[in-house]
Write a protein that binds this DNA or RNA. Sequence first.
DNA 1: GCGACAG
DNA 2: ATCTTGTCGC
Length: 256
Amino acid sequence: MSAPPAEDLIKQWESEQASLRKQVLEEDTEDWQREPDFSGLERIGGVDLSFIKGDDVNACAQLVVLSYPDLEVLYEDSQMVTLTAPYIAGFLAFRETPFLLEALQRLERNQPTLLPQVVFVDGNGLFHYREFGLACHLGVLSGLPCVGVAKNLLQVQGVYKSEEHQSQIASLKKGGDSFPLTAASGKVLGKALRSSDKSSKPVYVSVGHKISLDTAVHLTHRCCRYRVPEPIRQADFHSREYLRKNFPAANTQIKE
DNA sequence: GCGACAG
DNA sequence: ATCTTGTCGC
């Protein structure tokens, strides 16, 4: 019946990414980004989507805003949404961005003074097949500075999970240590960061929008109490909590 | 055909 | 993303 991942749709998405890609700002554009201890930075956002096990259509879209540097939750918004686009590596933004944008718009409408000055996104920014991952997409469409943080390495543009890569990871000795993720072209697309002394597995940081890579990496480190930066960790926690509370038995399968 | 595949 | 408890270690 219906054709698989429509080749036409993919082409359309690629062209849309190429177009929006031109609007990404890869440098620091905010005053606080240049201050010693990010003086002037007070609010950081975190977004995420959580799903119920056997359901990849209904999800909880989450936005949280934390204070900086204390990282206390100032705002929290959970909203059930119905996804339309499928998950296809390289096109995650077409599946999630609409709902994350809506959450930011709800906040702007209801409590504009709480709008975050930078948003942490669960996924990549420029570290992407076409240098336009979810963090760039949300950044350009929202106009807000965004940082992409992926928990797993996307093998892209010549960056592989090679033994060389593994040894580089082994060379990260303490929280804050990092090494560049360099494309075949020579451009540094992101950095692998050991986010805390305790976690040996790094996170992959890349520019989303309106922030430089070095600032993004430094800020990410400042936001880590554990491996995953607090804004994303809290967004993940609250969205899962929402699903637990509103869809209890959705977890207990009944076998005959 | 085989491996890759952010969330 | 989600399936899943205990367990070894600091």
